[in-house]
């Protein structure tokens, strides 16, 4: 009897220990306990997530490899990475739907960056004007706020009816999608100037134009950069819509065309190519931001 109870006791003790172990893990997440020197107590989400992010990417890729190669799902639903890579080589050399991968890519790049450049030279000045002048705000705010939430696919037909099926319509559609977030970012960037900076400039003899150019525009630069990053991202998402009608070239066209033939491998390959270009360009913009607005977040 006694022995039994002792065994039971020790078992329950081990059980308790295991519970305590789990408890310690939970405690790290939820308990209010001081941190090691050098860390900030209570700062949300501190520490680098780079390692975990790399792990996630590798895990997702491995999952893809295992699931697609195991035969659990048909290649039409999920082609293997090898098949996608083979398609990449094939489309690069032989081409698909009337063009090689390079030709499709160059066409799409010129559309997205053409629209982006056009948006930069129009949306940024208009956004800044909206920030500094109530007249400009009154003029531009209603149309921008109205069309901004509309899906580009909704106004695509009108763009085609008005401007035809040529290159201009495609660039214009992407341009419209980029324009609104960029103008809004520039406008709100104007607000990041402090009234003291403006007063100080006037007290040093600045004219209104000098205040706008030398003080307000510079203060707005960090937010303008953020707007450019958001804008180019929106540009990539609108690419497929822009290449839906009457296209013969472009990555979006290639993906849509492949989808009609249920060529999943080409679709996935196209998606990866678009994603990679968008990612690389975003990295470039972030680097440019560090070089051009080094004061960001330090004031």
């Amino acid at each position: 009897m006694r022995d039994d109870t002792r065994i039971e006791a020790s078992m329950s003790y081990g059980h308790l220990q295991r519970l305590a172990g789990a408890g310690a893990g939970l405690q790290r997440l939820f308990a209010k306990r001081g941190v090691k020197p050098g860390e900030h107590f209570g700062a949300p989400g501190q520490g680098s997530a780079g390692g975990i992010a790399t792990g996630t990417v590798i895990a997702l890729f491995l999952l893809w490899v295992v699931v697609s190669n195991s035969g659990w799902v048909k290649p039409i639903f999920l082609p293997t990475p090898q098949a996608v890579f083979a398609k990449f080589i094939q489309v690069s050399t032989e081409g698909f739907a009337g063009g090689t991968l390079l030709e499709h890519t160059l066409t799409s790049l010129s559309r997205v960056f053409g629209a982006f450049a056009l948006a930069c030279i129009t949306a940024i000045p208009i956004g800044v004007m909206m920030g500094v002048s109530r007249v400009a705000r009154g003029l531009f705010d209603p149309p921008i706020e109205f069309y901004r939430p509309l899906p580009p696919l909704a106004y695509l037909p009108m763009v085609i009816i008005w401007f035809g099926i040529g290159e201009f319509s495609k660039v214009y559609l992407i341009f419209l999608a980029i324009f609104a977030p960029m103008a809004i970012a520039a406008r709100s960037g104007v607000r990041s100037v402090s009234i003291e900076q403006i007063h100080a400039a006037y007290s040093m003899g600045a004219t209104r134009m000098q205040v706008i150019w030398h003080v307000i525009l510079k203060s707005a630069l960090p937010e303008i950069f953020t707007g450019m990053r958001i804008g180019i991202g929106v540009g990539w998402t609108t690419l497929v819509a822009g290449e839906m009608v009457a296209s013969t070239r472009g990555l979006g066209f290639m993906v849509l065309n492949a989808a009609e033939f249920l060529a999943s491998d080409v679709v996935i390959m196209g998606i990866i190519v678009i994603g990679l270009f968008a990612f690389v360009f975003d990295l470039l913009m972030r680097h440019l931001e560090k070089v051009l607005v080094p004061w960001k977040g330090k004031v």
Binding site: E196, H199, A200, K218, K298
Partner: peptide
Amino acid sequence: GVVFQKHALLPW
């Protein structure tokens, strides 16, 4: 000339 309490210099 005016000297302010803060936020008046141009950080760029």
